[in-house]
């Protein structure tokens, strides 16, 4: 009892032990608060998504959770017959592959130059090369659209959308490559050169294999970013459409459970992807340990 008293009201003359108890109490209390906060936060993050998933299986023609008209898979079955969704998905994938093909070489070149450049120009170059990430997406879409129409008379369409996306996705790839290159041991390259290997050979046999994991993750990230992108694409795509811009224009005219169905598919792919990633990570950790 006495310890409790001193703990709750620490006086200047209290023993060190008592102050430790106070500190411990305070952390317990703030931990409980933090946990409660986390519960609320995750509810806030996930409840809307859960509503969306539930509504996808509701027979009601307007997506709703409150007005339950029976379980149905109709909205999923209708998806493959919706020409614009299918075409949009095809366009999205087409653009995404184009973006990978552009962004990976550009990002790699930028990263190689920046990691080797020692002069003061490097900060300036760096600023220019990361600026597409820091620019609002719509501005990037606008500039690309204007540029290609004014100088090459190319109307906004799938091509301009691809270029606009590739511009900022290349910056992301560059950052990934730079992170990897900073951990590179340059001794191998130098040794190979000393032993008479040609520079092309050094790049092909040493640098590229070293960068391979990043090329893979970079491609995956580029693909996802490209499929996801709305703001930039919306401005640069003109009369054409991707899956996401098609979803966007449908939403503006009203809600349809078919969008919920697409949402469920997205959620499913994301969750499956996340779980596989975690499991793979676990297995790798276990291998590393055992």
């Amino acid at each position: 009892m006495t310890t409790l008293d001193t703990a709750s009201a620490p006086k200047p003359g209290t023993t060190p032990r008592a102050s430790v108890v106070t500190a411990k109490r305070e952390t317990d209390w703030s931990n409980a608060l933090l946990n409660a906060y986390l519960v609320i936060f995750f509810a806030y993050m996930f409840l809307p998504l859960i509503f969306m998933v539930i509504a996808a299986f509701n027979a009601s023609p307007t997506p709703s959770v409150t007005d339950w008209q029976g379980f149905t898979l109709r909205w999923f079955q209708e998806l493959p017959y919706d020409e614009r969704f299918v075409q949009g998905l095809f366009n999205s994938i087409l653009i995404a592959f184009g973006v990978i093909a552009i962004a990976i070489p550009l990002g790699l070149s930028g990263a190689l130059i920046l990691t080797r450049l020692q002069s003061g120009a490097s900060t300036f170059l760096y600023t220019v090369l990361v600026s597409p990430i820091l620019m609002p997406g719509i501005v990037l879409g606008v500039t690309t659209m204007i540029f290609w129409r004014d100088f090459f008379n190319v109307q906004a369409g799938l091509f301009t959308a691809m270029v606009a996306q590739a511009c900022f996705i290349a910056s992301y790839c560059m950052l990934l490559f730079m992170a990897r290159l900073q951990r590179q041991d340059r001794v191998l390259e130098e040794a190979a050169l000393d032993l008479g290997a040609s520079p092309v050979m050094v790049f092909r046999r040493i640098t590229l294999p070293f960068l391979m994991p990043t090329i893979v993750t970079g491609s995956v990230i580029a693909f996802l970013q490209s499929i996801e992108n709305y703001n930039t694409t919306f401005f640069a795509i003109g009369g054409s459409y991707t899956l996401v811009t098609e979803i966007g224009s449908r939403m503006r005219f009203g809600l349809s459970p078919m969008i919920n169905a697409i949402g469920v598919i997205f959620v499913f792919i994301t969750v499956a992807g996340a779980v596989t990633y975690v499991l793979m990570q676990r297995r790798r950790d276990r291998k590393a340990k055992g």
Binding site: E228, I259, I262, F266, V271
Partner: peptide, 19 residues
Amino acid sequence: GLVIPYAINELLRIFSWVM
């Protein structure tokens, strides 16, 4: 828990709130 809502498309996150 953080990555899943982050990875789901922006439009769909918005859509869930419109509902």
